[in-house]
Amino acid sequence: MNIFRLAGDMTHLLSIIVLLLKIYATKSCSGISLKTQELYALVFLARYLDLFTDFISVYNTIMKVVFIASSLAIVWCMRLHPLVKRSYDKELDTFRHYFLIGGTFVLALVLNEKFTLQEILWAFSIYLEAVAILPQLVLLQRSGNVDNLTGQYVFFLGAYRAFYILNWIYRYLTEPRFTRWIACVSGIVQTGIYADFFYYYFISWKNNSKLKLPA
């Protein structure tokens, strides 16, 4: 474990806490894409299959349980919670995310470290995570103004993978045989997708103005 990866995991955890806080405090999920939340639940379920078979560390196990539980809780909340589900922007959240699932699964069948079910699902979860934010970014552009907590949620979600890129550089430099091309390349693509959001987020922060994404 290195400081970059710990910072990345904590930033990731923070993004989930901010989202849970927004939904719990405002009893509303307006501005949040249910499709992105469903994709994240799928990412964690596909990636953490080894939760019960390979024990890495207490920290690793606890974080996996937290990520799976929180992502499922958010999806449940947005689909079934009587008060919250009313505020879901169903007509704005129209990204065809099934194409993302299909495309990334086919890619995982072709590009994986080993043609085994666990490795294919792991690669699938890495590729899917890289594009999972797209429905959310599209929804933010459609809904015009972005409330603070939602903006912070997306910002921390983008920042966590940027920390992971520093972690991969650090591990590449310090560990003789460290290569993890699938995660590295996919992580760079993932962080790149946030680039325009980071730009507008920085502008709004500098001008102390409301975050607005151009439609």
Partner: peptide, 10 residues
Amino acid sequence: GNSSSPKDEL
């Protein structure tokens, strides 16, 4: 075959 990378990251 080639051993896949250890999945020690989240």
